[in-house]
Amino acid sequence: MSVLVVIPARYASSRYPGKPLAVLRGADGTEKSLIERSWLAATSVSGVDRVVVATDDARIEEAAGAFGAEVVMTSPDCANGTERCAEALGKLGGDYEIVVNLQGDAPLTPHWFVEDLIAGMRRDPETDVATPVLRCDGRALNGFLQDRANGRVGGTTAVFGQSRHALYFSKEVVPYTSRVYGDAEETPVFHHVGVYAYRPEALSAYGTWSTGPLETLEGLEQLRFLENRRSILCVEVEARGRQFWELNNPEDIERIEGMMRDMHMS
């Protein structure tokens, strides 16, 4: 049994058209596109048998092929990355144990986030989907709150029960807390990391379900699983001194490049 990593990437993002081809400059001045940096993050994960980029755009196909990625062309009608992963799995076939969706806007994803996610799925065979969560320190939480105060949608937060299975995900900061935290303090807020691991059966079923009201309101694809009574295991991961942020808006480029400089990432 093996692990497939799919990197869904589309050009026509409503918030940031052409986002996968946006250039990020590393600490040493090296420039690479967002999709290349996401592919490099995926290929650094141990225990993975295959990594593919799934896209509907010839420009992304050409760019990904140029740096050596395997590309699967998918329909422009895919509503989100999970649907694109499901289509890619259908085209690729194969007896995969786990399919990982490492979204193409998360180039700072450390390899151990995905490795811990895969391990969590194997420990809990009843889980349909798993996703990493990262406890926010005060610096990260303040970044979330600043984005919302400025009318921007930044990261996503997750809440889960004692079993570690998700109760909800939101683009708002949940749970609410009125306390002001110092940069290095732990907070009760968990940042949802944009990576998913699916059982192939659950991934294949996803595209057969209609979009529910919560997914529509929040614009969060994982809520379709919760609305259809599928379990999502939240696997808490450790930053180990690494900063993490997803590229959601053009303004995030400067933030991510700053993090790369801080972490001396080329």
Rank of each mutant, 00 (worst) to 15 (best):
H191L: 15
E238T: 13
G212C: 04
E218L: 03
Q146G: 01
T30F: 06
Y206H: 09
Y168H: 13
A140S: 09
A69L: 04
F225G: 01
G90N: 11
A140I: 12
V51Q: 00
A64E: 06
D124E: 14
A130K: 00
V53D: 03
E254H: 14
S231T: 15
A140E: 10
T187G: 02
N249C: 03
Y181K: 03
R123D: 09
N150R: 09
R255I: 14
L40G: 06
A12E: 15
S170F: 10
A197G: 15
M121A: 11
L167F: 11
M260Q: 00
V235M: 05
T82G: 07
A69F: 02
R10Q: 10
F244S: 06
S14H: 15
G182P: 07
E97V: 06
L117V: 13
R255C: 03
A63H: 07
A166G: 03
L203D: 06
N228G: 04
L217Y: 13
Q162K: 05
G143P: 08
R50T: 10
M73V: 06
G47K: 03
K171A: 10
Q222A: 10
I118Q: 00
L247C: 11
S44V: 00
V5A: 00
G18Q: 12
V235I: 11
A58H: 11
R59Y: 08
E87T: 03
N142K: 12
G219L: 12
G68Y: 07
V5D: 00
R148L: 13
G138I: 09
V195D: 02
G207W: 08
G241H: 03
R148T: 09
S204M: 13
D57N: 13
V174I: 13
E227W: 08
T177C: 03
L220F: 15
L40R: 11
R152T: 08
E227L: 02
A64R: 01
P125A: 02
S266A: 15
F144N: 00
R37P: 02
V237F: 06
D116V: 12
R135H: 06
G94R: 05
H192G: 08
A197F: 11
S13E: 14
F169G: 05
S38E: 05
Q222G: 04
M1R: 01
K32D: 12
L247Y: 14
P76Y: 12
Q162H: 06
G26P: 07
G155W: 06
I256F: 15
L214N: 06
L40D: 11
P200F: 11
R123M: 11
I256M: 09
S178N: 14
V133W: 08
D95C: 02
V45N: 08
Y168D: 15
F244D: 00
D116G: 08
L223G: 07
A86E: 03
P213S: 12
D124H: 15
E36G: 05
D262Q: 14
G104D: 10
D56Y: 04
D262S: 14
P188C: 13
P17T: 01
I256E: 09
A79P: 00
L214M: 10
R224G: 10
R240V: 06
V189Q: 00
N249G: 05
V71R: 01
Y198K: 07
A166I: 05
